[in-house]
Amino acid sequence: MFIRAYLRASTQEQNAERARESLVQFAANHGQRIAAFYVENVSGATLHRPELMKLIADSGEGDIVLVEQIDRLARLKQSDWDSLKQKLAAKRLAIVSPELPTSWLALEKKDDTGFTDSILRAVNAMMLDMLAAVARKDYEDRRRRQFQGIHKAKTEGKYQGRQPDLKRRQHIASLLKSGHSYSEIQEMLSCSRHIIASVAKEQRQADAVA
């Protein structure tokens, strides 16, 4: 049995690896270690996730998919969620999350009769479907409120679109100039490599002009 951790953030500005250490500690608390990490920045509303598909392809039968929260996997419309479950079931992969205590049994030694395993899968299937429905509803509710807010701002002539986090970008620029590495900046500011690279590019362009 191998444990493969899946880390996802919705946008390039978010740090998808934020939960890495907490998952390492969670596995250690259960006497386990994580064999591989699969990290990507992609919307939770789409099933087009190259790293998740790679995780499934790399997995052997009975491996474990470890996620920080179920919505890292399950913020999908029903048809896509059903498709993902089929892919996971084809290799008998178990989903484990710190937020779902019933899933933790997958980290323990199975009994010889397989009874515990059968009960675990039945209970988890029900819990996962419920959490997936909640995650999808939360996503749709937030999107609806966002669109309503944008529409109201446009109507009132106040909408300016998404603005960059200038304070964070200035902080990144300062750290780059002082010689900090991308990894160090990621850890210090909990930001993505994408935004660091973007700031570094701006710096190079400014230096070239100067």
Rank of each mutant, 00 (worst) to 15 (best):
L47Q: 09
L47R: 12
H48Q: 11
R49F: 08
L52G: 00
M53N: 15
K54Q: 11
K54P: 03
L55Q: 05
L55H: 03
S59W: 02
E61D: 03
G62M: 09
I64C: 00
V65H: 01
L66F: 04
L66Y: 05
E68Q: 03
I70D: 05
I70S: 07
L73C: 04
A74L: 02
L76K: 04
K77C: 03
W81V: 06
W81E: 09
L84H: 03
L84Q: 01
Q86V: 00
Q86K: 15
Q86M: 15
L88P: 00
L88K: 00
L88M: 13
A89E: 13
A89W: 08
A89Q: 11
A90V: 07
K91H: 13
K91Q: 14
R92E: 14
R92Y: 14
L93P: 04
A94Q: 11
A94E: 07
I95V: 15
V96W: 01
V96F: 08
S97Q: 09
P98V: 12
L100F: 07
P101K: 11
P101R: 13
T102C: 15
S103R: 01
W104N: 08
W104E: 11
L105Y: 10
L107I: 01
E108P: 04
E108A: 14
E108T: 05
K109R: 14
K109Y: 06
K110G: 02
D111Y: 05
D112S: 02
D112V: 07
D112I: 08
D112H: 05
G114Y: 11
G114W: 12
G114Q: 06
F115T: 10
F115C: 06
F115I: 12
T116Q: 15
T116F: 15
D117Q: 14
D117K: 11
L120F: 04
R121V: 10
R121S: 15
V123M: 11
V123G: 08
V123K: 00
L128T: 03
M130G: 13
L131K: 12
A132V: 13
A133H: 09
A133F: 08
V134H: 02
R136Q: 03
D138W: 01
D138A: 10
Y139T: 01
E140T: 02
D141H: 04
R142N: 03
R143G: 04
R144S: 14
R145V: 12
R145Y: 09
Q146L: 10
Q146R: 09
F147N: 13
I150P: 02
I150S: 13
H151Y: 00
K152D: 06
A153Y: 10
K154D: 08
T155F: 04
E156S: 14
K158Q: 15
Y159R: 06
Q160F: 12
R162V: 15
